[in-house]
């Protein structure tokens, strides 16, 4: 017989583990890089950049535009433009269903949102891509929306800014997707001849057909810190050459070193940097 006997029920029975937990989910986020806990609201205020180690979390397309224009005001453009299903593509599920699911989960109409407004007083047509919509892939709708941005800028003599975040062309639209590269680049040729600025901002990740078309055609190309930027994805390269890739390969700083981008800019300084560039590029003289 034991010396003590428990008369009251166990404490654990009164308060279950589940209830005793302090609910921090939704309030704190752990930084992927330095693992410090970050207050979610604070993180939002710092444009989704870690306040300890400057790690850049992925930024949502809408937030990108909200924080870009003067006073956060802009006119949304082409929200109604969405992808068709020209090939009637079915993989593990029909492409149509995939688009519907992406719309629901991302809250976006397509992998890019675009808007018109002023930045530092300059007229700007801007688009921001979002990885949350089928990997930010470029199909017909994305191609059409960017082309319309460029055509509007030519007509109204504004600047074009596109924030890229994309795995490349959208497979489910086959050659239609591929031809968006041609379409957008053709429009950029006219923008170029019209002496109007195109600023391309590369964010994590920018690869494939997006990099190999408009993303690398900026008059000035800005990259966010440590973003993965390349033509072929690291996995494809590793399979081709059958070796591990060196650390930092295809990251923004690597591209800066190899002369492929003009600058690596912290997201918190992005707007100021863009205004500085537009002040130089939006020249009244060229409008004549």
């Amino acid at each position: 017989m034991s010396w003590f006997s428990r008369k009251k029920p166990k404490l654990e029975e009164q308060v279950s583990d589940e209830e005793r937990k302090v609910k921090t989910e939704g309030i704190f986020v752990k930084c992927v890089e330095c693992e410090s806990p970050l207050y979610r609201r604070e993180l939002k205020e710092s444009f989704q950049v870690c306040t300890h180690c400057d790690y850049h979390f992925r930024f949502f397309a809408r937030e990108r535009l909200d924080t870009l224009f003067d006073n956060g005001e802009y006119e949304k453009l082409d929200e109604e433009v969405i992808s068709g299903d020209p090939l009637e593509f079915v993989d593990t599920k029909p492409y149509k269903d995939r688009v519907e699911a992406a719309k629901k989960s991302s809250g976006l109409p397509e992998a890019i949102v675009s808007g018109k407004g002023t930045i530092g007083g300059h007229l700007v047509y801007a688009g921001a891509m979002d990885m949350g919509f089928i990997g930010g892939s470029m199909g017909s709708a994305v191609g059409e929306k960017i082309t319309r941005l460029i055509e509007r800028a030519i007509e109204k003599r504004g600047a074009v800014i596109v924030f890229s975040a994309s795995g490349g062309a959208r497979m489910q639209e086959g050659t239609f997707s591929l031809m968006q590269m041609a379409k957008i680049s053709s429009a950029l040729a006219i923008l170029h001849d019209a002496r109007l600025p195109f600023i391309s901002v590369l964010t994590d990740p920018t690869t494939g057909g997006v990099t190999a078309s408009f993303a690398m055609l900026g008059d000035v190309i800005i990259a966010e810190p440590k973003a993965l930027i390349g033509f072929a994805g690291p996995r494809v390269i590793e399979q081709t050459i059958r070796q591990k890739l060196p650390k930092g390969f295809q990251r923004s700083e690597f591209l800066l070193e190899h002369g492929m981008v003009d600058m690596v800019v912290d997201r918190r300084k992005m707007r100021d940097t863009i205004i500085r560039l537009l002040n130089f590029m939006m020249n009244e003289e060229t409008a004549k």
Binding site: D78, E80, V81, I82, S83, G84, D85, P86, S140, A141, G143, E144, T147, E173, F176, M179, Q180, A182, K183, S186, A187, I190
Partner: peptide, 14 residues
């Protein structure tokens, strides 16, 4: 014509 040829490529709604 060259511009329009590529310009019209795509299958979007809206």
């Amino acid at each position: 014509n060259r511009y329009n040829k590529f310009r019209k490529m795509g299958a979007w709604i809206g």
